[in-house]
């Protein structure tokens, strides 16, 4: 298999803190790879090393077949978590500027900037200053800025945070479109929903160490069986029902985790006597659950609900 990105035994320390610890990772070309992990786990540090903004203390990073360096920067499209635009520049100008910084010619960058804006419904904003854009539009322009030089590897750090549902959908389509075009997309996220919807592979990092890494379907299978339940009534007794190991209770709905080998039908029968069941959905565990279990502890769950 051809890899768009490989990390071999990469470590990075900040003072005494090990931000990334002996991390190895291979990302196949043409895939969508989700980077998950609680705050401070090392996602952004990993991404910054891949983009050569900071250099690893140990290990090697290979980007599209080349050892990571100042030169590989031009091959990447990177959207950082902290993103901004020059307020006084016009949309088309700033896109062209980003393109030129990636080594595009002046004329080529100019045409491409207008094309992109036109294609993504921002044509009329091309000659307006970026300060006039709404937040969602601003993020769109930022994203276009990472695409302008047609990078074969796209790295998006928390691209979904702060987007409204319409823009979330737009971004999702855009990411899928990139894969169709044969490009590789890596994105980090707190939003399990998006990761579940579009990722081919999941990589979970905690305390600088790799916790889970593999195709989404496999990752899910490795976890416990679960039942999604929508109900009315007193949910406090759910945990004591037969076969239930743990409950992720949200009040009107709950996720019930079953002991290996237990029968969901038995559970359903018991449930009827306890609460009024509106939905009973037997399914593979959500990525959310995989995440919480892998990271362990309530802190991670908290991070998630706030993320």
């Amino acid at each position: 298999m051809e890899y768009a990105l490989t990390l071999e035994h990469v470590s990075k320390r900040f003072g005494a803190h090990r931000a990334v610890d002996d991390l190895s990772l291979s990302i196949p070309s043409g895939s969508i790879y989700g980077f998950l992990g609680p705050n401070g786990a090392g996602k952004t540090t990993t991404i910054r090393m891949v983009t050569n903004i900071i250099q690893p203390d140990e290990g090697t990073i290979t980007v599209l077949g080349q050892k990571s360096s100042e030169l590989t920067k031009d091959l990447l499209g990177y959207l950082p978590e902290e993103k901004g635009l020059y307020k006084k520049m016009k949309c088309a100008e700033i896109l062209a500027y980003f393109g030129r910084l990636k080594g595009m010619g002046a004329r080529e960058a100019k045409t491409k900037a207008r094309d992109l804006l036109e294609r993504y419904g921002l044509g009329e904003w091309a000659d307006k200053r970026t300060e006039a854009l709404s937040k969602g539009m601003g993020q769109k322009v930022q994203l276009l800025g990472t695409l302008i030089h047609d990078p074969r590897l796209l790295i998006l750090d928390e691209p979904f945070s702060g987007l409204d549902p319409v823009n979330v959908e737009l971004l999702r389509d855009l990411i899928l479109e990139q894969r169709r075009a044969g490009r590789t997309v890596i994105f980090s996220t707190h939003g399990m929903e998006q990761a579940e919807q579009i990722c081919d592979f999941i990589f979970l990092i905690n305390n600088g160490k790799k916790v889970i890494d593999g195709p989404l379907s496999q990752v899910r299978k490795s976890a416990e069986q679960a039942v999604m339940l929508d109900y009315d009534g007193d949910g406090s007794l759910l945990a004591s029902l037969p076969g239930v190991v743990r409950v992720n209770n949200a009040g009107k709905s709950a996720e019930l985790f079953l002991a290996p080998g237990s029968d969901p039908q038995l559970l359903l029968r018991a449930l009827v006597g306890v609460v009024q069941v509106r939905r009973f959905d037997q399914r593979e565990p959500s990525l959310h659950e995989v995440f919480v279990r892998a990271v362990g502890g309530r802190q991670a769950a908290k991070d998630l609900s706030h993320g």
Binding site: L79, P80, Q142
Partner: peptide, 13 residues
Amino acid sequence: SNRIIEVLLSSIS
């Protein structure tokens, strides 16, 4: 504070 630095640094040193 503009938070544009990181975008730039992903393109230049």
